[in-house]
Simulated scan of single mutants.
Amino acid sequence: MLIRKVRRYLIGHWRGEQGLAWSFWINLVLIRVLLLLLQDWLRPGKGQDFHDMQGFVLLLALLFHGVLFVWQAVGVIRAAELYGRTTGYMAPVWGTQMVLVLAVFWVMTYAFDAWHMTRPAPDNLGRQYAVEAERAEKYSIEPTADGQSLTLSGSLELGIANHLKQQLDAYPDVKQIILASTGGNIYQARGLSNTIRQNGLNTLVVSECSSACTTVFIGGIKRQLSSGGRLGFHQYRIEADYAVLNADPLREQDRDRAIFLQAGVAAWFLDRMFNSPSSDMWYPELPELMEAHVVTDVAP
């Protein structure tokens, strides 16, 4: 008996026999809204997916966003046509047609969303760890044998400033940072410089410290250069083959100029430092570095 009533109801709507108001508001709008709310409620959580249930989910999407929607739309269209023929009033008919056009796009969006739920969720956390590991391979911060110094070498990559803080916590007897780097991220360089200055640490260069590394060096309370070490300076530049939003090399130079001035570096040195071509590197001699107060002491 129930099956017969359901079958009669479905056929009645399909033929447009249930009236425009009922067909539109109940069979189309109400049922469709309930289905879309149900889909939103069943959406997988962040980092989860229905990939293992792909066949079942796509079958439901085909049923509810395909077969069922065709039944809803056809019934409403036929009910609207019947309404227009019997009343001669076409405004509701045209309005119904416009709503159906919008409903098609709405249903297509949810159908695509259902398909997207079956795609494997990206392992964002794993990808983040992989990127961080890749960056960490480009530098090292290791203690010396006596535990009095940390040797920072390699590229100044994202995360290196936090790594230095962790190493300082692990080795509280450190008094000096030995630098060996040809530069990298200027923002990380400033973070390293601030950490060195706030902890009252000295800096030492025994090989080369150039580009952004010099900003790290200038954070030292006592700044030493060994006989085989050198410091390299140049104008700032953006090393990217694409447009970097809100990046202004001149503005960044001015910020670091203030850091160098605060450390007591002579203004004439900074003028020459930031006038050196970005494509070249200026390596001042030790007497010039001492006179400008970039280097405060010669390493023994």
Results as ranks from 00 to 15, higher is better:
D241Y: 12
R135G: 05
S140G: 08
I221E: 13
L168P: 02
W25Q: 03
G219Y: 14
V29W: 07
C209W: 04
L286C: 03
G95L: 15
I221V: 15
A263Y: 07
Q72W: 05
T203S: 11
F69L: 04
K222C: 02
P44R: 09
W268N: 09
Q198I: 06
H163P: 02
E81W: 06
A103R: 01
E17Y: 00
F274Q: 01
L250H: 07
A267Y: 01
W25L: 12
S278C: 02
L270D: 00
V131T: 14
E208W: 02
D297W: 03
L192R: 06
F50R: 01
S279L: 06
R85T: 06
L20N: 02
A114V: 09
C209G: 09
N194V: 14
M53Y: 12
V104F: 02
K5W: 15
F24C: 07
G75W: 07
V216T: 15
P172W: 01
M108V: 12
S227M: 07
G19L: 10
R190T: 12
E157F: 08
G183S: 06
P120Q: 07
W41S: 04
T203L: 12
V101N: 00
L125Y: 09
L125K: 12
L231M: 04
H13F: 08
M1S: 15
Q224Y: 10
T214S: 06
N202A: 09
A247P: 06
F274E: 01
E17A: 12
V131S: 14
L164Q: 11
T203A: 14
P277A: 13
G159W: 08
R251T: 10
A21F: 03
K222A: 10
T195G: 08
D297L: 04
C213G: 13
L168M: 11
R135A: 07
L100V: 00
L286R: 13
D123A: 10
V93P: 01
